[in-house]
């Protein structure tokens, strides 16, 4: 009997097309399930990844067909780690209005960042703000 691989990794460069998201997220979900992550945790990671990739494509690369998004993911039975890097100018997450403030509740922007922050244990941006790393430990 062969033992399962110690981790699952994926490195992919995708075009600036939000519809390509599923091609990264579906195998990630399969990997999380194979490593025994609970459905609720898988939901949260799927949500954080979808929002981070869509942000990179829409806000980072402005959906430019000349730009791509680099995605690196590592999953095992203890931890999920992913870095999403776009080719845009970057942004300062502190400057994005908080969509959970009463006056911003019905605004369109920033809701994805709130979801990412809530579903990942750690969210870190690089200095230029065009790369985000998400980390979550299995409870």
């Amino acid at each position: 009997m062969t033992s399962p691989p110690p981790n699952w990794t994926l490195e992919r460069r995708i075009p600036s097309d939000p519809d390509v998201c599923a091609k990264v997220i579906e195998p990630l979900v399969d990997a999380l399930e194979n490593f025994g992550w609970a459905a609720r945790e898988v939901f949260g990671i799927r949500m954080a990844m979808e929002e981070a990739i869509v942000n990179a494509i829409r806000h980072g690369n402005q959906c430019s067909p000349n730009k791509s998004v680099q995605i690196a993911i590592k999953v095992d039975d203890q931890e999920f780690l992913a870095t999403i890097t776009d080719q845009g100018d970057g942004f300062d997450p502190k400057q994005v209005p908080d969509p959970t403030d009463d006056e911003n509740l019905e605004c369109d922007s920033g809701r994805g960042l709130v979801l990412i922050k809530n579903y990942a244990d750690e969210v870190t941006y690089n200095q230029s703000g065009n790369s985000v790393t998400l980390k979550k430990s299995k409870p």
Binding site: R40, F43, G44, P99, L105, E106, N118
Partner: peptide, 16 residues
């Protein structure tokens, strides 16, 4: 579903 409801709770849209 509870996890979908969480999306509304986390974004405070359960007040909208």
């Amino acid at each position: 579903r509870p996890e979908v409801r969480d999306v509304f709770n986390l974004t405070k849209l359960d007040s909208v």
